[in-house]
Simulated scan of single mutants.
Amino acid sequence: MNKVLTSQEIEAEGASLIDEIIRLSDFTFDRLPMLDIIGERLVENLSVAFPDLTRAMCEAKLTSLDYIPLAQVMESLPAPVLLAVGAGVPFDGEILLVIDRTLLLTAIELMLGGSAKHIDTESTQAFTAIELGFGERLAAAVLAELQRALSVVGRAALELDRVDTDPEAAAIAKNSSLCARMRLSVSMAGHVGLLDVVIPYDALEPIRPDLGKIYFGNRGEDQSTWHDLISGQIERAQMDLEVVLAQEAIPIQKIMSWQPGDTVDFGIEEGEDATMTCADAPMFKVSLGKRNNGFIAVQITEKITDKEEPENDGNDN
């Protein structure tokens, strides 16, 4: 149902729109479509990096990309808030990360092994030195993933310079300077926090021509970003292995006659050959043995190639 506005509300909204048009007319800038792509890549990177850091699932989303003066960024900051300043290639100046209280405290609780169910997101109490220390780790992780996202337009090398909670101490440009602000929503452990990446428009000067056109490929030295990302996840994955000691065909009438306590003799002795499988696919040939502590163990004797089928003499495998 459409809302009916009074004449005063219509006049107020019209005045607000006019003020916004006048404000933007004071700046001469071109929108940079590649920043949207970099923001989406940053979201994808953080969705992998944060779980590695916090051991919890994370869902990140790029909610907006605005071009606003730094003064407007600073005026909208909540209190308290973590401000992290970084610098490096390809920027000509400093950039600012804004991490709100919810995101910071949730990440800290998870990094310490907690569940983050009962964190106080409404408090205005200043951060402790320990919380600021964890904030440095979180900000450094964000800068590392931003560096990887920037590889789409060229070589990048970013470092964390400092963290602070005072907006004046974390100022990266004049209040009147135009900035590009990428706002990300990050959901972890049932809490939704905000992360802003604020980049002064002047700091983008070295790569502004590349940001003004759409380009989906990677340039620069880092050509294996996604390869490394996927490889890292595969290496941390777990897989179940099974050792098939023996296979034997037994009449179903005999199986149905079995009772608790009956013994089925497969004739397996120490040193017998077996096959190690993963998801029913043969991986290795192994030899059965026993360790000094009495536990059964197997020794890998041969790797089974894709074309090689495991030997099956009908007795053991």
Rank of each mutant, 00 (worst) to 15 (best):
P167L: 08
E269V: 02
D161E: 08
D222K: 11
F134K: 04
D316W: 15
A249D: 13
R208E: 09
M1L: 09
V192I: 12
G314H: 14
R101C: 04
P282V: 02
G86P: 00
S47H: 03
H191L: 01
L211M: 06
R219Y: 09
P260C: 00
D228N: 13
T6Y: 02
F266L: 15
P200G: 04
A171W: 12
I108L: 01
D222Q: 08
S47Y: 05
D202E: 08
Q299W: 01
D36Q: 14
T28A: 09
I304H: 04
L241H: 00
L96M: 10
L241R: 00
A274N: 03
M256G: 10
R148D: 08
G114F: 00
I268A: 08
S151G: 10
G294N: 10
R183S: 13
S176F: 13
L103N: 06
E242A: 14
G193R: 09
L62S: 15
G217C: 05
S7T: 11
A237H: 00
I37E: 15
G93K: 05
P310C: 09
P78C: 07
F284R: 03
I22L: 15
L17T: 07
E308P: 06
L104E: 06
W226M: 04
L150I: 06
E40V: 13
A169H: 07
M111N: 03
K174W: 10
E122H: 02
T165M: 07
A156Y: 01
P167F: 06
R208I: 09
K254Q: 12
Q253E: 11
D313R: 14
D19Q: 12
K254N: 11
G193A: 11
D120H: 00
N175D: 15
V192W: 01
E75L: 08
I250G: 06
K303S: 09
W258R: 03
I268W: 07
D240Q: 09
E40Y: 09
A281C: 04
F295E: 15
E159A: 03
Q247G: 14
L104W: 01
A237L: 00
A246D: 06
D120V: 01
D210T: 14
A56D: 12
L184R: 01
G212R: 13
E248S: 09
T128M: 05
G289R: 10
I250W: 15
A274K: 05
D26T: 13
E75V: 03
V4G: 04
V192N: 14
G232R: 03
S287W: 13
V4M: 10
I130Y: 05
S187K: 11
N293D: 15
K3M: 12
I95Y: 01
D52A: 10
A274Y: 07
S115D: 14
N317K: 14
A140C: 05
E40H: 13
V81G: 00
Q223I: 08
L5H: 08
G88H: 01
N312E: 11
D120L: 02
E205H: 11
Q238C: 03
L82D: 01
Q72K: 11
A189T: 02
S16Y: 04
A144G: 04
M74T: 12
D265W: 13
P80E: 03
A173P: 14
G220I: 04
D66F: 11
T102K: 00
V85F: 05
V142N: 06
I207H: 12
A246E: 06
P310D: 11
A71C: 10
I268N: 07
A157N: 05
K61V: 12
L241F: 07
A297Q: 13
I207Q: 09
T63M: 12
L24V: 02
I214C: 01
V98T: 14
P78M: 06
E40C: 04
